[in-house]
Design a protein around this nucleic acid. Sequence first.
DNA 1: CGCCTAATTGATAGGTATCAACGCTTGTGG
DNA 2: CCACAAGCGTTGATACCTATCAATTAGGCG
Lengths: 220, 220
Amino acid sequence: MTHLGHLLTAAPAPGARGAAGARTVERLFRAGQPLFFQGDAARHVFELRAGVLRQTYLLVSGERQVTGFHFPGDLVGLSPEALHRTGCTAITDGRALIHRAEALASPTGDTGLQHRLLSAAVRQVALAQDQLVMMGRKSAFAKVEAFLHYLVNRNGAPRTGSGPLDVEIPMSRTDIADFLGLAVETVSRAFTDLRNAGVIAMEDPHRVTILRPLPAAGMQ
Amino acid sequence: MTHLGHLLTAAPAPGARGAAGARTVERLFRAGQPLFFQGDAARHVFELRAGVLRQTYLLVSGERQVTGFHFPGDLVGLSPEALHRTGCTAITDGRALIHRAEALASPTGDTGLQHRLLSAAVRQVALAQDQLVMMGRKSAFAKVEAFLHYLVNRNGAPRTGSGPLDVEIPMSRTDIADFLGLAVETVSRAFTDLRNAGVIAMEDPHRVTILRPLPAAGMQ
DNA sequence: CGCCTAATTGATAGGTATCAACGCTTGTGG
DNA sequence: CCACAAGCGTTGATACCTATCAATTAGGCG
């Protein structure tokens, strides 16, 4: 896998209403509001500036798979087809830049955006792989443990060494369950077990403190 | 998600030893041979021409997660970091074009390759999502069933309507197990159950025939 | 031939999905 | 202001499924 991460940081993001004109607009959204639905025409790419998004895949059986959560800095809405394969909904209030799809592939388009796009796509692959590793864990306990690790990394935590670490959990237990392929009750029980085991403290369901360092996700 | 799939087909692949010079070389590999290891410097991107690859993520606990299988046409080896996050091994004999990483991001580089690269990355995201949906299935039976569906789609099968369909399964039961997050025995039992249920016929472990149409993976 | 790996089948214990009930908060309407 | 409904999170009981250990068979290879 080739090193492309520097592209994201090297290319400055264009202003929402800058010289680029009407190609890019900023949009505010509120918690619970959908950004696009599964099956919609994929005409825009969203550059998340604030807030948390949930990407879901619906099955004919009615089951739901959360294929990812998105945090500020993520580019969302890429599709290999003309239609969205997944739907995307806001978990919290936030805002995003909306880029028109035409600017993405055309040679006359924003090459800076194109590079960031490639970088974002490569990063999305890596994040999906992380999720696969999470879901591959045998026990529900280990899955939720890995999920907390994932949250810490994605939230851009200050990495305060080995001390206690507060973690915001903006999504619901149901979202976590559909993310990890577990039942809601199992996720809830796993949190309780983590608390009883002294790994975390739980002030409320959406705010926990990691007391012991979590096991490393992979092989260093 | 923006429509980018046409880029892959629109841009002709450069010849292995064409005018581009020594930037791209072709490499033959044999079954079992590693293309790169987890932790290696990510200096090349592999454009698979023939054969099947297995991408794996090793955990410190010794567990292994297969993060994907690759088939001809795939671009393999992209990484958001300087090092490979996963290892890649050949399951069958095959061959691949090896592109140097420098040509990928530089403005003077092969723009055709860059576009194919973006398209491939977007496709990899979609494939990883498919895998997530597979792993999210509750029962082992449904997981293996979805895996067969996945294999049919990825092999570029002729799609002969509703008739019986032969499926090559180049990977081992262990690979499938680590791919789906199951135990080897469970995968083996699922195949047996599928045979007993009349869904498939199994001439040998690596060659099955789908007798009944598999349930659609998602929501159309 | 003997060793090794892969695949399969059996038996069992353990984990998780499922059904059910409860407390809590939120929001809505009387 | 209060009553009620609805959603979310948690906990309990139980049946089912799967991981695990174990044994067997078949095939490849030195």
